[in-house]
Computed example of a mutant assay.
Amino acid sequence: MHHANHYYGHSHVLARYCGIDGDPPRLHGYLQHGWNIGDGMAADHEFVAGTPLLLWSERTRRRAWSLGRRETYVVGSPWAYLLLQDQAPPVRRDGTIWYPFHGWEGQHVQGDHDRLIAEIKDTEPGPVTVCLYWQEFRTASVRRRYERAGFRVICHGYRGGWWEDLDPLFLHRQLDELRKHRRVASNRLCSAVFYGALAGCESAVYGDPMVLDRENLAFGGQARIQRQWPELHGTRTDPVVAREIAVAELGADRLLPPEELTRILGWTGVPR
């Protein structure tokens, strides 16, 4: 199994949906682990020819097909399966959960956090929770800026990597937080914004989008995102439209029954 299939507890969510207890078995294919505007796969991953791509949505599958990727299956996002399994009763929502654009272990973000903090303060009407990626959260100079601004600062955890430090409950914690908040926002359109829209939050994308070190612009980058999804950018967006787009991008309209998903993931015959 490619180690990225375990990111954020994705394989654990799918295994639970398929009725498999314990650690998820080997998954036959490359599972999309984040929203992107290309073929669904991370640009830095190496692939074995002929291995299936397990994609979140029909939109992503069409892009992958246009790039010559033929072994593709639309399975829906783990996030959408989690919401299907964890249908908690409604709770009172308050304030905004804000996700500053982040880098990852191989690339870091460059930007003015102080200016972003000022924009958040000028825009958000209620209490603000800032959720940082683990790298920024562990960087005291970054974390303390948001704390000094009076924001509640959290981290959902470590996504895991190379089969170590796996966190099956990452998405569960994220869902708990999103359900507490009325709004979700970021300075770039990203998985978290779509997750929040699907989980019932109002969404917003505004502020300095910052710069990712050595950012790959092969698919059009930030300029294309703003051009293709203008309805999702701004301090206030239409929640009905945002949810419709989130359903399409996260494949919430393409979820498979457990038996079919089990077959596609190569888990037929695995003890339940």
Rank of each mutant, 00 (worst) to 15 (best):
W98A: 00
Y8V: 01
F151T: 04
L132Y: 02
D253E: 01
R92W: 01
R26D: 14
E46Q: 15
R272P: 04
W162G: 06
L250I: 07
W163H: 12
A64K: 06
A197N: 13
G161D: 13
I97N: 00
C131T: 03
D86S: 15
A80R: 12
A118T: 10
P258A: 09
R144S: 13
R61L: 08
E119V: 06
A197Q: 14
N187L: 09
Y8P: 06
T268I: 03
K180A: 02
R138M: 03
W267H: 02
S191W: 13
P257S: 03
Y133K: 07
T72R: 07
A252T: 04
R236G: 07
G106P: 00
I120H: 00
D238S: 10
G29H: 04
V270H: 14
A88V: 10
C18Y: 10
P100V: 00
G38Y: 03
M210Y: 07
W98Y: 12
W229N: 09
D44K: 15
N187M: 11
L27R: 15
R145K: 15
Q135S: 06
E177L: 04
A15W: 13
R145V: 05
S11I: 07
R93E: 08
P100N: 03
R61Y: 04
A42R: 01
S186G: 08
G50I: 13
Q85Y: 12
H10F: 09
A185W: 13
E249S: 01
P100S: 00
T51D: 15
V247L: 14
A204F: 05
M41G: 14
E119H: 06
M41S: 15
E177Q: 04
Q135P: 01
Q174S: 07
V240E: 10
C155P: 04
A49W: 08
L84V: 06
H3L: 04
C131N: 11
C201E: 08
G220H: 14
Q228D: 14
F101M: 14
R59M: 10
E46V: 14
L55N: 15
D238A: 06
G22R: 13
R63G: 09
W56N: 04
Q87I: 06
I245C: 02
Q32F: 06
C201T: 09
H102A: 10
Y7M: 07
Y99R: 04
R152T: 05
V13S: 01
Y7N: 08
Q174H: 06
D112A: 07
Y7T: 06
S11H: 09
W56Q: 01
L27P: 00
